Simulated scan of single mutants.
Amino acid sequence: MVNHTTVTTFLLWGFSSFPKLQNLLFAVIFLFHVTILLANVSIMVAIKLSHSLHTPMYIFLFALSLSETCTTMVIIPRMLVDLLSESKTISLPECATQMLFFFGLAANNCFIMAAMSYDRYTAIHNPLQYHTLMTQRICFQLIMGAFVIGFLCSLGITITIFNLSFCDSNIIQHFFCDISPVVYLACDFTSRHAMLIFLLSAFVLVGSFVLIMVSYVFIASLVAEMPSAQGRYKAFSTCSSHLTVVSIHYGFACFVYLRPKSSDSFREDMLMAVTYTVLTPLLNPIVYSLRNKEMQTALRKVLDGIIKILPWLTNKKTLNL
């Protein structure tokens, strides 16, 4: 028998390997965080206020922007505090909660993107019956389904990991409670646990990706049968933004969560995690804003409204003074 010290708190060691860069990292990540919030909130406000965007495509985009915003709120504020703090400790319940919400929201993003691909297929396959087949009620049902399935998978992963025993070392080689660095600290982690976590992760990533690819195979076959080049271009242009976001999102996620792990890969995974927790949430508003004329028009209206109301607010404050 080996004597072990039971761990009750973890230490998020992440950026402690770069002590001279922590102030710079704080400034850069804080700037990105504010930009992410402003960009995604702008998308949601534009969709909410513009009646022309009250269509299934933009309802899903609203849900994806909201989910991406919540995902960053689970990770980045804590990361910013740790960059300035000497104490980087996190309790087991806090770590489990962070993992549950991060992977629940991340899985939700995957299934929302799968629903968006089905929406594009329905629009191209049945354009005349599209508004009958994709009502707002069906959209909300798909969004809620994505939320429930995502959090059930995340709950399964979180319960599996935090039912393990953690002993001796409490240093997590990451800036948040990610799966591999936490599992590496467990004393009784077995191949059975590894298989269960892998299957749940694969169900989310591979399962949703297969649904997306099946939708696009059918879309491609429908577009290929269109007689006019203009019709083909118009059909593909409605899917290009979604395909761009999907490609980058799944590329990073599959690289991090579906490849074999070792303790040597934690730093590489941590650097990659900065990309998908800080940069990837910016993709959604940037891609859809730059490649979608309807969204550009709606965002301009919101911006014009803000510019018009600012002088009124300034005058009101002056009068109050």
Rank of each mutant, 00 (worst) to 15 (best):
D168W: 02
Y184F: 12
T35G: 14
P181N: 05
G207R: 09
C110W: 05
C70A: 14
H174M: 11
V217K: 10
A63R: 04
F101T: 00
S169H: 10
N126V: 06
M213W: 12
I161S: 07
M295C: 06
F266L: 15
D188K: 07
V7W: 07
L283S: 02
T135K: 00
W312R: 14
L199M: 11
E68N: 09
V148L: 11
M116W: 05
Y184I: 03
H131L: 09
L80M: 02
E294D: 15
L84H: 14
F60H: 08
Q98F: 08
M113V: 02
A220M: 06
C167I: 08
S154K: 03
L211I: 04
G150C: 03
T297W: 08
I138A: 05
S228I: 00
L66K: 03
F198W: 15
T318F: 12
Q22C: 04
I143N: 00
E294P: 02
I75S: 02
T6V: 15
M57C: 01
N108R: 07
K234F: 14
P260Q: 03
S262F: 07
V256M: 09
L271Y: 11
R120A: 13
I309E: 12
F101Q: 03
F255W: 12
L24Q: 05
S50W: 02
Q129N: 09
A123L: 13
Y130C: 06
I29H: 00
H242W: 08
R78C: 00
S208E: 05
L142R: 11
L313Q: 10
L12E: 09
I219T: 07
G150K: 06
F209T: 05
I112Y: 01
L61K: 04
A224S: 14
P93N: 03
R120C: 07
M213L: 14
S117H: 08
S221D: 12
K234W: 14
Y184G: 00
A123N: 10
L142I: 06
Y233E: 15
W312E: 10
G156W: 06
A123G: 05
N109P: 02
I212P: 03
F218P: 00
I59R: 12
S117D: 03
L310N: 08
Q22E: 13
L21D: 04
G150Q: 04
Y118V: 05
V182W: 07
S154Q: 04
V41Q: 01
T238G: 03
Y121F: 15
T122L: 13
A107G: 12
F266S: 08
Y276S: 01
T135Q: 01
R137H: 09
N23D: 11
T135S: 13
Q230D: 14
P19E: 01
A186L: 11
S191R: 10
M79C: 13
H51Q: 12
T318I: 13
F147I: 05
T35N: 07
T297A: 11
P77M: 06
L155Y: 11
M99D: 00
A123E: 13
Y184K: 10
Y130V: 04
K308L: 11
F10I: 00
L37F: 09
M79A: 08
D178G: 09
L66E: 02
I157W: 04
A39Q: 06
C153Q: 05
S180A: 15
H33P: 00
M272F: 12
A235R: 04
A123V: 07
N126Q: 11
A46P: 04
